[in-house]
Nucleic acid binder design. Sequence first.
DNA 1: AGTTGTCGAGAACTAATTACAGGAATCCCG
DNA 2: CGGGATTCCTGTAATTAGTTCTCGACAACT
Lengths: 212, 212
Amino acid sequence: MNRQTKTKQAILDAALYLFHLKGFHATSLRDIGQKAQINPANIAYYFKNKNGLLEFCLTSYFEDYIDVLDRNVQVLDDKGPQECLMDLVRDILHFQAKNFLASSFIYGETALDSNLNREILSTYYMKENYYFQVVYEKGFKEKLFRHVSFPISMLQLKGQLSAPIIHARYSREVLHIFPQESYYIEKYIEDTIHFLHGTLFNNEPVRKLALS
Amino acid sequence: MNRQTKTKQAILDAALYLFHLKGFHATSLRDIGQKAQINPANIAYYFKNKNGLLEFCLTSYFEDYIDVLDRNVQVLDDKGPQECLMDLVRDILHFQAKNFLASSFIYGETALDSNLNREILSTYYMKENYYFQVVYEKGFKEKLFRHVSFPISMLQLKGQLSAPIIHARYSREVLHIFPQESYYIEKYIEDTIHFLHGTLFNNEPVRKLALS
DNA sequence: AGTTGTCGAGAACTAATTACAGGAATCCCG
DNA sequence: CGGGATTCCTGTAATTAGTTCTCGACAACT
């Protein structure tokens, strides 16, 4: 890794950490510079300005995210909609855990109506929605999914997927579970899939969870 | 309404609106003053400083929220845990829809790790958790709830409850559903209760959703 | 008249951004 | 192969803009 990519990475790491900690607007370039052990002017050099830094963070995150979706949906016909959706859930939750800092900061920002990054987010939302819609439609067509409302089911699923990130502090401090530890991630994945079986899939769960 | 409460309310309305729109740190007191048609110095007069304004927003919101929980859990023994939890879901979703601006801003802020309002939030999280735990425990004891992990189930439920707020823009722009309209609220409540039947409650749903 | 509420101006501070200069790495031509 | 030129990278410092908060004056009720 040459000098350039090294400082650039240091800036990104520091920025992501501080964004997740305090939010975008609350972190100054000075903070980032201090954390990354570089001069704030460097940020301008690499990312033009604060917004450029934000845009870079967002786009590189979403590129990878869309990639995860794309890879999964490409094998939709082989796996069938149920397997495909389960794998999507698995991969998305893994992806979010791996990119925890970025995920939590992005979820936090998107809760707001801010028009700062509206265009960027809109684009990726549309893409994300497209992939899920394809899976759902195949599921409906083959009668493997119950006849539920796609938007509502999608919104529920989004809630499930975002919960370990958005409520991370709540999880840690109150529930005493640690949504970044692989034990809990696997457990949460299992339960999210169970949720799909309970609300969306037509046939019985392949592997039942413990029932009392 | 006398002059005092009138300006105070104007400040609060403007603040909540702008916080929800741009986030706490991104809104200046000048913005609030302009939106509320008052002089920014008034904010200091009523709330001491910007943080005081934030604290007031948070505490008054959570007071009401805890009130909703409390009222429901007080009649736990009469209704039984299933009915009680369903009514909780109903009332919480209604409450959030009614206080949409505050809800979305607070969810946005709590996704971050900010230690600004850590103490306030911690307190209310603990309370919230207490009420749910009481309901769950009765449900477990009377074998009306399946033998699931409370923290994980709770996290899932939190995800369900926060989704219409956090993903409000996604809902509107991509899914074309409007999580503030009573039609969708009722529909979403129905589906959330269905989620409880599918993942938590032991007996069959009282009123089945359309199955294909 | 005295209390309470509102306003405008500005002080003190912090932020992003830009200009610029010194240094390091790299390249090119002798 | 070597040394100078060029490009790339980093740090300092000044500019500009925007923020909170205070203070004293003014208005409006009681």
